[in-house]
Amino acid sequence: MANTIKDRRAARVRRAIRKVASGRPRLSVHRSSEHIYAQVIDDAAGHTIASASTLEKDLRSSLKTGADKAAAEVVGKLIAERAKAAGVTQVVFDRGPYLYHGRVKALADGAREGGLDF
Rank of each mutant, 00 (worst) to 15 (best):
64 K>F: 09
23 G>F: 07
19 K>S: 14
29 V>A: 00
91 V>N: 03
72 A>P: 04
20 V>L: 04
16 A>V: 00
19 K>P: 03
60 R>F: 02
70 A>E: 15
72 A>L: 06
3 N>S: 15
45 A>S: 12
100 Y>A: 09
3 N>P: 10
16 A>I: 05
59 L>Y: 12
32 S>A: 05
88 V>N: 03
114 G>P: 13
64 K>C: 02
45 A>Q: 11
76 G>V: 01
110 G>T: 04
41 I>E: 02
79 I>H: 05
74 V>E: 14
86 A>D: 05
3 N>M: 14
31 R>S: 00
85 A>L: 01
89 T>D: 15
2 A>H: 10
94 D>C: 03
54 T>G: 12
3 N>L: 15
106 A>Q: 04
67 A>F: 05
3 N>Y: 07
87 G>P: 15
101 H>C: 08
26 R>D: 14
87 G>M: 08
36 I>K: 11
24 R>V: 13
27 L>N: 11
67 A>T: 11
73 E>V: 02
90 Q>S: 10
40 V>N: 02
53 S>N: 05
6 K>A: 07
113 E>H: 11
87 G>I: 08
41 I>D: 07
71 A>D: 11
96 G>C: 10
6 K>L: 01
81 E>F: 01
19 K>H: 10
61 S>Y: 04
70 A>P: 08
56 E>T: 14
118 F>W: 15
8 R>F: 09
113 E>I: 08
22 S>I: 01
92 V>N: 08
13 V>C: 03
105 K>A: 14
84 K>E: 05
38 A>Q: 04
50 A>H: 05
49 I>K: 06
17 I>L: 15
9 R>M: 08
30 H>M: 05
115 G>L: 11
89 T>Q: 14
50 A>K: 04
86 A>Q: 13
96 G>S: 14
10 A>D: 14
17 I>H: 01
66 G>V: 09
10 A>N: 12
88 V>F: 06
115 G>S: 08
6 K>M: 00
31 R>D: 02
41 I>Q: 04
30 H>W: 03
38 A>D: 08
50 A>N: 01
76 G>K: 12
113 E>G: 07
98 Y>V: 12
77 K>E: 11
75 V>D: 09
107 L>T: 03
48 T>M: 04
56 E>H: 11
19 K>W: 02
3 N>D: 15
87 G>E: 06
92 V>S: 14
116 L>K: 13
28 S>F: 01
9 R>L: 13
117 D>T: 13
73 E>Q: 15
76 G>P: 13
8 R>W: 07
112 R>G: 09
34 E>Q: 13
92 V>M: 13
80 A>V: 03
1 M>S: 15
4 T>Q: 05
37 Y>I: 06
63 L>R: 00
95 R>W: 04
27 L>K: 08
115 G>A: 07
7 D>S: 10
101 H>G: 09
21 A>I: 12
107 L>V: 05
10 A>E: 14
111 A>N: 09
105 K>P: 04
90 Q>M: 05
75 V>Y: 09
5 I>P: 03
17 I>S: 09
14 R>K: 14
47 H>D: 10
103 R>Y: 00
86 A>C: 06
28 S>T: 15
